[in-house]
Design a protein around this nucleic acid. Sequence first.
DNA 1: GATAATCTTTAGCATATTAGTCAACTTTTT
DNA 2: AAAAAGTTGACTAATATGCTAAAGATTATC
Lengths: 145, 145
Amino acid sequence: MKVSTRGEYALRALILLGQHPNVIPIAEISEKTLVPVNYLEQILLQLKHLGYVKSKRGIRGGYILRKSPEQIVIGQVIRQLEGPLAPMGCVSVTAYDPCPLEEKCLLKPLWTLIRDTVSQLLENTTLNDLLEDQISIPEGSMKLK
Amino acid sequence: MKVSTRGEYALRALILLGQHPNVIPIAEISEKTLVPVNYLEQILLQLKHLGYVKSKRGIRGGYILRKSPEQIVIGQVIRQLEGPLAPMGCVSVTAYDPCPLEEKCLLKPLWTLIRDTVSQLLENTTLNDLLEDQISIPEGSMKLK
DNA sequence: GATAATCTTTAGCATATTAGTCAACTTTTT
DNA sequence: AAAAAGTTGACTAATATGCTAAAGATTATC
């Protein structure tokens, strides 16, 4: 049930960019986020292609947010960087992968519930929520049965 | 955010065993769950060492549940078979792994929330719940802010 | 007690993923 | 022109995953 470094690193970079309105060179992002420069380049490039950031070349170049923090949905970033949020292919909406057992599978409801829960959580969190440190425990939290 | 086949297969086997009160040979479990025999042997062995099942050797041998379905907590099975439920080491209770950013990390609250949510879900589901197909969407579902 | 079914255990392998490095190249600014 | 900075792609090392092979140990039944 892990999130890979790629997603984590991307979010770190986005947070840093969200905290500063100006262009920041990769080297500085790397320092502040503790992500190796060369690896970070790949990730920033991908974020650029996805439209989250834009880059400026040359002597005072670097990266800057393209979308506003309210428009950047964490769930989407993670999905785009490291694949479906679903724990199993059989319950993935973005990468459905059928399974021969499916019909009478007693596990599917559980995987579905997990998928829905995690998805709901991440789809309703934006970069802005993170920046404002507004993540909190939902009120009437999870109850089964 | 994937669950590996190992956890999935273990649960499939436990479900099958939970559905039958008698000893079932590996070959039959393999057929019914669609898991390769040799791989299944490893997994059942691990489940045996963990105390979930017991085995009977010889000509009418096979596997049978050791604990009752109510006592088998899905979250624990998954954790024991494939490691911590937490999405990141920095928020894992069973395998905490510090991170230099931690203090001012704006991501940690999010990871914590995910960990707590998934954990709560899986820790409150037993094999019995699966057998009775009683997994359902929690009432006052997730709300952020 | 032989034997056949079954469990037990170890070793190994192929593939995929992850994390990261390196180096050459292009663009832009000064 | 030169320097700073982004762009790109190839390449590597480590690890995890999914699975196979095979030899050995145990036990129920005849």
